[in-house]
Design a protein around this nucleic acid. Sequence first.
DNA 1: TTGAAAGCGTTACCAA
DNA 2: TTGGTAACGCTTTCAA
Lengths: 343, 343
Amino acid sequence: MNTRVTIVDVAARAGVAISSVSSALNNRPGVSEETRKRIVQAAQDLGFVPSLRGRSLSAKRAFAVGLVVHRDPYVLESDPFFGSFIGGIETVLDPRDYALILQMGSEPVETLDRYRSLAANRRVDGVFLSELGVDDPRVPLVRELGLPAIGVNAELDFPMPSVRQGHVEGIRELVAHFARLGHRRLALVTGPHEFIHAGQRRRAWSDAVTAEGLPGGEIVEGDFTYDGGVVAADRLLAGRAASERPTAVMCSNDLSAIGFMARAGELGARVPEDLSVAGFDGIQLGTYVRPTLTTIATTPRLLGLEAARMLLAAVDGERVADVDIEPARLVVRSSTGPAPVLR
Amino acid sequence: MNTRVTIVDVAARAGVAISSVSSALNNRPGVSEETRKRIVQAAQDLGFVPSLRGRSLSAKRAFAVGLVVHRDPYVLESDPFFGSFIGGIETVLDPRDYALILQMGSEPVETLDRYRSLAANRRVDGVFLSELGVDDPRVPLVRELGLPAIGVNAELDFPMPSVRQGHVEGIRELVAHFARLGHRRLALVTGPHEFIHAGQRRRAWSDAVTAEGLPGGEIVEGDFTYDGGVVAADRLLAGRAASERPTAVMCSNDLSAIGFMARAGELGARVPEDLSVAGFDGIQLGTYVRPTLTTIATTPRLLGLEAARMLLAAVDGERVADVDIEPARLVVRSSTGPAPVLR
DNA sequence: TTGAAAGCGTTACCAA
DNA sequence: TTGGTAACGCTTTCAA
């Protein structure tokens, strides 16, 4: 029973040549309707599933795409992005019988090697480039390797097709929200400057602050972790009189905002009475903590879905255009409120 | 330049037959040391990388293994397990040129279909079975599909090789810790009963409580989420006088313990002064929240590493024995303390 | 429309 | 020890 049904068996049963079976089953022309039916029937009777390996060798395709996560396990551990992103990818891959190969490289160099070996043995037909860094070395690499790739939230001048979710709108909404609530002393906790999205969010923030006619305010660099939020809170709040503290802070992701809030409380700043805090991402945890976290909600699932669609198109040799999915929007919850009255 | 170097090129350059190249490069006997050297040299000169597809077809192997996560994206989002688990798997797969195929099925039925299609087109040589349920339908399925599989934290009578990390020791340590601190009113927040590890932890808890000669205490079912912890806190604390509340609670994972602590605070129970809370897992977040979370620390990375090692052995046709890795141990932090004085 | 045969790049078997 | 050759299971080209 361990012997698989092959195209030969189907051909024999239908009484035709294997080339006809191939054509019929792949809906290619050159087969009469009548024989096609007979072949399909035979295939069904036998429970024929074309061998991926045979197809792979012949078609010079891997029928798989790769995602290399180039961060340490802890980040994956607490990062909301990848779970949903991968879920979105699968939605597209599955019906096309493509699979996702996941690799993890903690060291940057190691990561590059993963791409090299994926390419060397033609393990994948294309890759996703997410969490892009400034002057990311993966970009020239995949180009050199001839690997089709899709950028995820890349810069505008990114040299490959990219899917993006706008961050400008949500950040503008948040700053306007702060302004409306009477805040004048703002602060921003960024992500590590080596990630391009950290810089993007920072610029959008500065632009929005300027547009609202508010003072620039402080900017401190965080690291997207809970602990980074804690450290940022220390930097912005510890040892300062209330009048010296910012009254409204945006952290560049939710996890660090939650850390920030926790530490703020310890430092005697009540949220949102003394201090408004907002995050960016829209992770579930933000709806559970108290106060619930105001945030700019992204939709990683859609990002993954679109990225996968684009990647498969690119693999098929189509010219694919950049796609902008619906921008991330402000979701007001209870960590933001009116500016405290000046004393 | 897009034409790959094949075994034929290597054979030509070395002036030998392709079969000799194959033997030489795979360290099989039947090649003189001298020719082997020449072949290796030629391969190196040409930058030969054997084609995975060719090998795959010929060797009837996929050189890939599968992990199907059968939970909804949100869980992956906040679950510490998979990031590290996958990292451990990779450590083993990489040197052997195996890849990990990750699939996500939210619906249980969908999940089973993933296994079916993985098997149908021989996409993987074996799979991991983690997050096992009671009477898990995947077990008979993979058996029927003839897919080598390794159970992760399976029951003792699991019909396939399994890697386990002991939970009994840590739970016993925790209960002893509670007893030593003078706690008499204990409570347990379990995971969903359909997961076998929920039942395992529950039994270990009950046994330990009995062994310490403590009263049984309450048991409520949680769901391994932050919100589940919140709900459990409501169940155990809301509307009760302090004398009716438990003084020491173990939640079956850290995330729910953190939710539990947050809600406990809102309900006027100070942790650890009025109430000791402990979790299970050892996630990073537990070291950041205040108070820092006492927990039973697991090592998913080691679990993944061992599971992968076993799976590859099974794929190679070896008979593999069950493996027990170092048990999870108690890590005392600041969410547990002396029982409050009776009033 | 149908069928035969040549790849695709390995591994494995069997003569030489 | 070597080399030739038949699988492996498909797609694709080219005759019939």
